[in-house]
Design a protein around this nucleic acid. Sequence first.
DNA 1: AGCTAACCGAGACGGTACGTCTAGTCTTGCG
DNA 2: CGCAAGACTAGACGTACCGTCTCGGTTAGCT
Lengths: 205, 205, 205, 205
Amino acid sequence: MTKEHGSVAVRRGSIGAKRNPASQQAILDAAEAILREEGLSGFSIEAVARRARAGKPTIYRWWPSKAALLLDVYHGFKNLRQFPDTGNFEDDLRGFLNNQLIGFWHGGLCGTVFRSIIAEAQSDPAAAEALFAYERGRRKFAEQLVDRAKARGEIDPDSNSAIIVELIAGFAWHRLLTGRLDGSQDDIEAVVAIIGAATKKNPGA
Amino acid sequence: MTKEHGSVAVRRGSIGAKRNPASQQAILDAAEAILREEGLSGFSIEAVARRARAGKPTIYRWWPSKAALLLDVYHGFKNLRQFPDTGNFEDDLRGFLNNQLIGFWHGGLCGTVFRSIIAEAQSDPAAAEALFAYERGRRKFAEQLVDRAKARGEIDPDSNSAIIVELIAGFAWHRLLTGRLDGSQDDIEAVVAIIGAATKKNPGA
Amino acid sequence: MTKEHGSVAVRRGSIGAKRNPASQQAILDAAEAILREEGLSGFSIEAVARRARAGKPTIYRWWPSKAALLLDVYHGFKNLRQFPDTGNFEDDLRGFLNNQLIGFWHGGLCGTVFRSIIAEAQSDPAAAEALFAYERGRRKFAEQLVDRAKARGEIDPDSNSAIIVELIAGFAWHRLLTGRLDGSQDDIEAVVAIIGAATKKNPGA
Amino acid sequence: MTKEHGSVAVRRGSIGAKRNPASQQAILDAAEAILREEGLSGFSIEAVARRARAGKPTIYRWWPSKAALLLDVYHGFKNLRQFPDTGNFEDDLRGFLNNQLIGFWHGGLCGTVFRSIIAEAQSDPAAAEALFAYERGRRKFAEQLVDRAKARGEIDPDSNSAIIVELIAGFAWHRLLTGRLDGSQDDIEAVVAIIGAATKKNPGA
DNA sequence: AGCTAACCGAGACGGTACGTCTAGTCTTGCG
DNA sequence: CGCAAGACTAGACGTACCGTCTCGGTTAGCT
């Protein structure tokens, strides 16, 4: 998936007064490789530049901060997973947790990258804004999942979509940030069951 | 609560072959003051030593890492809030969120410190271990809240205590880490309602 | 003398496969303005290109180095002052120091530019060669001044023209490079007197 | 004279809250070696730190600028040459040019270093001030040479000591800065002769 | 009249060096 | 032995320039 970096003699140069996609990709690849091999603590603009055989200004020209670069790496992983409408609320929840959150983060690099972005956002305001904007979008998107179930008459129409989404997302973040993504399948089922129970239709009638 | 730092001319020295509590307190005070005034991005061992008029080795001698110092500052805030048994599950939940999580973090410095610890834990393994151990303890402690309600026969005895606690904690973490602790009171109610609905006794009988 | 730079909207372009004199002039003007306003430390090819609204390659195409550009700026100032034959050796010396050296450098930009060229020549071999060639020519030219006096029978015919010229030039360089061009008029007289005494005819007869 | 740099494994550390002379010397040695091997254009704080295996802040802590470091290297060469009182004015002049100026600079590294300092002073005000102060002292010192000859009744008591010294120093600077230190012995004689003739006692009596 | 060649501006590229900051270690000298 | 102090190596930070390159466009002069 990621090309070899061994062929050093490439000597990418300018391709005129516009962004060179080869440099771009080399930088993203290097960033990904460093995260994979050394983790967040070894991740620095300096290291990325060295590995990508790029100049530091080239990185700063296109990514204003470390977090921006991390977010770009993360986006490179996204859209690999689909978010299908199964027609069933609990299956949708399962899919959400498995394909967008815990299961998506688990194993590969994605979780590491996302953890890094969250950490960065706690001290860098620019990173915070970028992450929060991204996160707002993700939540809005996920609320559709609940609203579809309401529209189908499958769940209680008074369910608070935003809070439900945030409970689920919060659970996943917590697992990610406390290093407990492993062996969560049973726990995912438990979460789905709890949310299912809480949104069951006709609670009093 | 925190004493003045203005009287710089204190010139604390050694008090012999044992830890000098005045230095320890000065370091903790300085750490807290820096976090309050400059935030996590301005927080460094260097800055703490400068402000506390302490030598860096004195800090490293007693706190192995930045995160250990942060945790100590955080512990200084803890136990200020109680965690009373109200005898009612939903009130217990409300109290948990208000006194131990969102309400506790909100406004003051505590949230900032805890955010910092979480961030630090994402790149420093030692910090991670300390945070995870702390968090494990907190969760076990909170599960008692659910188990008490089960024992009282107030909620479904099959409720998954661990997952319920983690949903709530995850929600609070998510709010903290995305800078949305403000105006959460209604949302706390919504969370309590959802958990309450999901644990209602005798759902089918 | 130098046209206004305010009318930015000129949008000089190519005028075909030949050097565009407008661009050349704009670059020289910008170089001069930067030296005047910011001094040598603010002088860079980058800054000149920015100010002249020229592309860097346009500068590099015509001037191989920073020093070449500086020399061109300097040449723009030359030939403004005359070097007349007064018919009297000491008056010639006075005129040389006042019109070609100290008096010429003093006050205006010329001294700054020449200082810059000398500095550049100490690390850039190409600049050194250009400066040395220029300087050789100036010395040869100035030696005529002494030789004329010999021819007139005004001074000792055994006087060493080259050394006399170099003593005078060295004095002026030293004043320039140690920032002491100001208030040199009396010192110029003293130099003239010393050289006059040293070249007096009939020393032993 | 200069020790080997090959034994890299030294790992100099702090020796407490005071300047480490070993680091000091290593930095000066590295600076000298770089100037010798690569010249001024290869001389940078970065390169010196690399070669000396020193941290950049260690250099900046003790030398505020590149020029300060150069001056220190230069001072390391000084006082190697004496400035004896020969009892004869022209011999003193010869000695001055040979031991303090041209002859001192010629051949070795001293000339290169001093050229570098002069160049640096043309763009760095701090360097300029340091050089000018040094130069003022040197001139005052050299004027004693002339004043001694006056006191001995050897030369015209009305001779302008300051200008005489500056003519000689300027000649030497000019030779240094135009790369013509070689083969100056005859020229030194010519300079001595001119100054001697200009200061001859009782010119009219 | 169309083609070519060189110019122009613009600005990205890989680099080097800057001067500052922090990390974490070490040693001294006082108490 | 703990302490304040502050030096040390190491290396990342973000910025400024360097000199080279390619682009897209323009114009002059040759075919």
